[in-house]
Design a protein around this nucleic acid. Structure first.
Lengths: 216, 216
DNA sequence: CCAAAAGTGTTCTGTTTACACCCATGT
DNA sequence: ACATGGGTGTAAACAGAACACTTTTGG
């Protein structure tokens, strides 16, 4: 079913005319980089409800853009719940991350990095909240995680793990069952809306826990 | 004993004259940001053997530097083995991360971020190799990890965890015992010299492992 | 009453911590 | 001998994966 997608914009002008590029633009004198990317997404592609934004890395190879002026880019990972569908312009479209069209500059590598970051954080943080709708069934959530991670995730254990960590909460409501019958699924929601690290240290934990501010 | 330290340089000129700042400088047209920071460290403070370098984040608040021109900085975490002692200039010195002097700009926040990143990566990667000398005893390694993490680490379990993961290797030699006796300690070394993620996913692993390139 | 989808109980396994105990050396 | 640090053995706690089983719906 679902697959991991990325919003790309088709370049009209050289260099790399016709290729697909990540949305973005110039940093203004009065804004920081995060404010800037949020502005560009809102203005240019109508993406207003970003559920999560984080810096990925700086891409700065001198020849990453084929001709002067030299451009240094700060790449971001931005996530939008799977049920929002912004009114994107004609030259902008969602693409499967697994089958990218020819990309401009180093944007293919950036998308790869973003995918890897997303995959890693899904497993040790509550980042799922940024991909899921407000209310969802466990099997819908399983589909999301499977698409993002690239392999089948067990609904049983997904629910168990997220519940134990206190990330998932039943709403009390249920979704109607499908045309072929089946038990109606309970609707859940994420308890938090901000990024939290839920599995901070795999090993070498402090002797008798005392949750330091292991931030980020 | 040991403590986590950071190399700072005392500013001579305004703005923020007298305060301590992270080493760094302008990006040149023909270099990328990592090349640039390596050059600056080698040229300005004689740090030539960086065991590990990685991007931290971009700091870009418009007013982070009090007067024009506006400066956007890419911050790095750079690690040096604890036994190297570069010939730093007179206005440059190591400072305890736990007791920073007044810092210039947002450099205090940057150091904090760096410390948190280091702490996290010590636990799920082999990053210890960047802090340790070529050969070391387990108790020396324990001291390093304790200093970096900020809490006592058990030598017993440290050795066990790192060994099981195949990161630690006995050299066959031993260190002489101290003045008050005690069994001589075996000398170990790290098997790898590049960053490896050793505990990639705490949960939601692929059904029957097949180590994807979960890079970074 | 059967199929389909959801949800729960239970077992198994691996990893990490905690802690007791044994080893080698100097005085 | 004994104190001092180094190293190993072992048990207990915990978390996650796997899978069988029960529950609730539609035809």
């Amino acid at each position: 079913m679902g697959s991991l997608q990325v919003l790309l914009w088709q370049r009209a002008r050289e260099p790399h005319a016709g290729r697909w590029a990540l949305p973005g633009g110039r940093l203004r004198p009065t804004e920081d980089v995060e404010t800037s990317i949020r502005r560009q997404l809102a203005e240019k592609v109508d993406v207003q409800q970003l559920a999560h934004v984080e810096q990925l890395a700086v891409f700065s190879a001198p020849d990453r853009v084929p001709r002067p002026p030299r451009v240094v880019a700060t790449a971001f990972l931005g996530l939008v719940p799977c049920d929002v569908d912004p009114a994107v312009p004609a030259d902008t479209a969602w693409h499967q991350v697994a089958e990218l069209p020819p990309t401009a500059f180093d944007h293919g590598a950036i998308v790869l990095r973003a995918r890897n970051r997303l995959r890693a954080k899904l497993s040790y943080t509550n980042l799922g909240f940024a991909l899921a709708p407000r209310k969802f069934t466990v099997s819908a959530l399983r589909a999301l995680y499977s698409a993002a991670l690239g392999y089948r995730v067990s609904a049983t254990n997904l629910q168990r793990v997220l519940s134990r960590r206190g990330l998932l909460e039943p709403t009390g409501h249920t979704a109607p069952s499908g045309p072929s019958g089946g038990r109606p699924a309970a609707l859940f929601r994420f308890t938090g809306k901000g990024l939290e690290v839920t599995d901070p240290f795999a090993v070498l934990r402090p002797p008798r826990a005392a949750k330091d501010d292991a931030g980020e």
